[in-house]
């Protein structure tokens, strides 16, 4: 199946380029930091506590740091290619163990937010798309435009002030209980739900206006039959594509929301790592976010090829979605 091979080939290349970009950025970051390079790399490998002048000298020798930045860079990229991410400069733990630890919390938060967004966004979008021009539809357009202008941190702020400070219903920070999850997940979900509802509305409206939707009714099918047999099938690919692309915004939201609510995920860890100039951790979180995007979108592509076997379906859907 050539379309399958093409998708996997493209996504593999994308993953490779993501790795190289992250590698370049973190390598330059490493070099830009003040202090001894070899010492920092050694600390990145063995942790600060285990780093001695000998270890640094060994690193200098082994990497041939005196040979110039190009070779050092290739070595740096080589480490990434082997998924050897080193150790955190702050905790001394390996980056892998730190990240696997935090990823669970982030996935919990992001998963809850996406689920919530879909539960709100999909039905509302479909409902309004089938009734374009109605009061509900115009209200949706208004709300989704306003939501787009509402930064997540402001929303989080408002939710904290209302539910945590004024009403004292929910905790503003912490982790472990379901009640801790509510506010951050809601903060993350509301913007996503508004955008998803809007995109679903556009896709539904487009399908409902199409000649094939009209012809299906002319064939004698009821509205319900037309929607479930011809509507859903055609609405799904663009909405799925959109959800895949939203992963970047989700990752951004995770960074902000985790920091505001003190949620111990990788977004929180990234801000910490930046604060402490912990390059290996920055690199690790950046790779997880970038490769997570690639993975999610590979799954989206594969799902879409099952629904839409046309070879060109994906590209046209992608092009159409950018400015929905």
């Amino acid at each position: 199946m050539s379309s399958l091979a093409r998708i996997l080939g493209f996504r593999l290349a994308q993953a490779g380029v993501v790795g190289v970009i992250v590698g370049i950025a973190t390598f330059v970051m490493m070099r830009a930091l003040p202090g001894d390079l070899a010492f920092r790399i050694a600390a990145g490998r063995y942790g600060y506590d285990n780093t001695t002048a000998e270890a640094a000298a060994q690193v200098r020798d082994e990497l041939g740091l005196d040979q110039g930045p190009l070779l050092a860079f290739l070595d740096w990229i080589g480490d990434i290619a082997r998924f050897d991410l080193g150790r955190s400069l702050v905790s001394g733990e390996t980056v892998w163990s730190e990240i696997t630890h935090q990823l669970g919390a982030s996935l919990q938060l992001a998963g809850a937010a996406v689920l919530l967004a879909m539960l709100i966004g999909l039905p509302v979008g479909i409902w309004c798309g089938l009734r374009a021009g109605s009061t509900a539809d115009r209200l949706l357009i208004l709300i989704s435009s306003a939501a787009r202008a509402m930064p997540q941190f402001l929303l989080g702020l408002v939710l904290i002030v209302i539910f945590a400070v004024q009403l004292r219903l929910l905790p503003a920070a912490g982790h472990g209980d379901v009640k801790h999850l509510v506010l951050p997940a809601l903060t993350l979900a509301l913007g996503l739900a508004a955008a998803l509802a809007r995109i679903t509305r556009e896709a539904t409206h487009g399908v409902a206006q199409s000649s094939y939707y009209e012809f299906a009714r002319w064939k004698g099918l009821s509205d319900r039959q037309v929607f479930f047999r011809h509507g859903l099938r055609n609405i799904t690919p663009p909405v799925l594509t959109y959800l895949g692309l939203q992963f970047v915004l989700l990752a951004e939201g995770v960074v902000v929301v985790e920091t505001i609510f003190g949620w111990p995920g990788i977004g929180h860890a990234l801000i910490h790592a930046i604060f402490h100039r912990d390059v290996p951790m920055v690199q690790g979180t950046a790779l997880v976010m970038g490769l997570g995007f690639v993975l999610i979108n590979t799954l989206v592509d594969l799902a879409i090829t099952r629904i839409d076997p046309r070879g060109d379906g994906r590209s046209s859907n992608r092009a159409g979605i950018e400015h929905g």
């Binding site: 994308q14 993501v18 970009i21 992250v22 950025a25 973190t26 970051m29 692309l245 970047v248 915004l249 990752a251 951004e252 960074v255 902000v256 990234l270 801000i271 930046i274 920055v282 979180t285 950046a286 976010m289 970038g290 490769l291 995007f293 690639v294």
Partner: peptide
């Protein structure tokens, strides 16, 4: 496209 804007600004 896979990398969040926040991340690049932070780096």
């Amino acid at each position: 496209l896979a990398l969040p804007a926040l991340l690049l600004v932070l780096i």
